[in-house]
């Protein structure tokens, strides 16, 4: 199992104005179905509340994703850049479900939890947005940056019994 600190990810919160959730979803190609993320080659969008989405994308420039989303959803939604406020950690490997199952109260069995499955939930009391990105299975976990270190310690503590490889993804920031 690989547990990776994903530093090269830009993260934005999109909040549709009241009554504009459908049109925002259509404009930005977001999913309106709770628990179902849209995963593209570059971008991953999680519906985390009614009219509210978390958008993850490969980091390119500071504020780049926010400006792009603001332009695309002008007049429909508010966008707030969370790239420095959240931390994405990826857990990948056959034992990933067992590891998350030690702190997550959701049903992560493959019959319910397939690629694209997402949820805003608590894992071991850490507020966390979770998305399954592929069939390995790999999960991206988005936590508040201030809790990331503590959450990392929880993850690696509980992953010890399965065996894991820790990695830190680096990104060149100008």
């Amino acid at each position: 199992m690989a547990i990776t600190v994903r530093n090269g990810v830009a993260c934005c919160l999109v909040l549709a104005r009241r009554g504009f959730a459908e049109v925002t979803a259509e404009r930005l190609e977001l999913s309106l179905e709770p628990g179902r993320a849209t995963i593209g080659a570059e971008r991953c969008c999680l519906p985390i509340a009614p009219g509210e989405w978390l958008v993850l994308e490969q980091w390119r420039a500071d504020g780049g994703l926010r400006m792009q989303l603001e332009g695309d959803a002008a007049g429909l939604a508010y966008v707030s850049d969370q790239s420095h406020g959240r931390q994405v950690i990826r857990v990948a490997g056959p034992a990933a479900r067992d590891l998350l199952g030690r702190g997550c109260r959701l049903d992560l069995h493959p019959r319910k939890c397939r690629p694209g499955f997402c949820a805003a939930t608590s894992i071991a009391e850490y507020a966390c947005a979770l998305v399954q990105v592929d069939a390995v299975p790999s999960f991206d976990l988005v936590v508040a940056a201030g809790y990331a270190e503590s959450f990392w310690l929880w993850l690696t503590d509980h992953a010890a019994m399965f065996g894991y490889r820790a990695a830190i993804e680096t990104v060149d920031r100008p």
């Binding site: 709770p34 628990g35 509340a49 009614p50 109260r105 949820a119 939930t121 608590s122």
Partner: peptide, 10 residues
């Protein structure tokens, strides 16, 4: 109504 059945602790 949005997230489905969840545990009381949430």
């Amino acid at each position: 109504p949005f997230c489905g059945a969840r545990d009381e602790t949430e």
